[in-house]
């Protein structure tokens, strides 16, 4: 494994982690339109908190996919064709969700408004669920042939562990979204977001414990990377406790970072466990490795150069856009 191959494995992890951190609260805010907001007016106020940002956040996913295609074409080909139906459903969810932000502003009656608000809700609910399922399914090992084709049957994709994985990512996104709302709304919405997140944590503990327990039996992560896997799990637990305490004592910014980094660490857990593989085959002979799945040295070098130049610039204006639009939103009745 060359240094560039290793670097790009990390880059892919960072891009997916960035996606979950940023789009994670987007999804959570979308879910909050039903769990937190009480009426359509509040729902649109809630969505307004992410309206300027959701599209930029989604680019993390597009970049992750594109970067995977560029740096590990064999991984991209196996993963995307292998999880065909799950990714298809994710796309449908993302499409319904994506158009709803714009279409809801054109709704001309309560039926159409409900239609697009529900689209946003279900899109925000199912996107993280399907993606969480996909990642939790692939770390259990999948039936692969020598050409890298994944022949994933129903049970490979849908099993107790993958459902728990989907649930964990979705639930954590919801809490993350509520934390974001506690930072970007005022008055009644702000207070309710804090209270709801505070309560929701009690269910997050059992979900995370189940996730860890199943990961012990269903993956070889602790066999291959005992200390690092354990360490990451430990940090997730501590982050969750910290997030819970923070939101309980109204340190909303801290809570937001805690939930965000919990999502980041789920990706870290997966990529750490995968290493040095990218896809785990039931027959370890056919494992797809970083070493063999990557693009050529030249492509990786060129991509590295481009990344080093562009990523800092992207990050600067990305964060600037949040800073420019840092004003809290409120609904006028409670002002």
């Amino acid at each position: 494994m060359s240094i560039f191959q290793f670097l790009w494995f990390i880059v892919i992890a960072i891009l997916f982690a960035g996606f979950l951190f940023f789009e994670g609260f987007d999804f959570g805010v979308g879910m909050a339109t039903r769990f937190l907001a009480n009426n359509d007016r509040e729902r649109q106020t809630v969505l307004g908190a992410i309206a300027p940002h959701w599209d930029g956040n989604e680019v993390w996913l597009i970049t992750a996919g594109g970067a995977m295609f560029a740096s590990f074409p064999l991984w991209y080909a196996s993963l995307f064709s292998g999880y065909y139906i799950l990714l298809f459903l994710t796309l449908i969810a993302l499409i319904f969700r994506g158009v709803s932000f714009e279409f809801v502003t054109h709704a001309e009656n309560s039926f159409q408004r409900s239609l697009w608000l529900w689209s946003n809700f279900f899109g925000s609910l199912f996107s993280p669920f399907f993606l969480g399922m996909m990642f939790t399914s692939l770390i259990q090992g999948v039936p692969m042939d020598a050409q890298g084709n994944v022949w994933a049957g129903f049970n490979v994709v849908v099993n107790i562990f993958s459902v728990i994985g989907g649930l964990a990512v979705t639930y954590l996104s919801l809490i993350h979204g509520l934390h974001f709302l506690s930072l970007r709304t005022k008055n009644s919405l702000h207070n309710r977001a804090i209270n709801m997140a505070d309560k929701l944590y009690w269910l997050l503990y059992p979900i995370l414990i189940l996730f860890v327990v199943f990961s012990i039996f269903k993956t070889d992560f602790y066999e291959k990377h005992f200390f690092s896997s354990l360490l990451i799990v430990l940090i997730v637990v501590l982050l969750t406790l910290w997030g819970h305490l923070s939101i309980h004592f109204n340190h909303n910014g801290r809570a937001f970072f805690a939930s965000g980094f919990s999502l980041v660490l789920i990706i870290a857990f997966i990529f750490n466990g995968l290493f040095p593989r990218v896809m785990i085959s039931n027959n370890s002979k056919y494992d797809l490795l970083i070493k063999t799945a990557s693009a050529s040295k030249l492509t990786l070098e060129i991509m590295t150069g481009i990344l080093v130049v562009l990523l800092p610039i992207v990050l600067i204006y990305f964060f600037w856009s949040y800073w420019v639009q840092r004003n809290r939103r409120s609904d006028s009745l409670s002002d």
């Binding site: 989604e58 050529s296 492509t299 562009l310 992207v314």
Partner: peptide, 20 residues
């Protein structure tokens, strides 16, 4: 993939972030 992926990744990094 060795040739086709790079423009796609650059497109996202260079253009899609800026655009959105």
């Amino acid at each position: 993939g060795d040739i086709f992926g790079a423009p796609l990744a650059i497109e996202a990094l260079l253009a899609f972030f800026l655009e959105s």
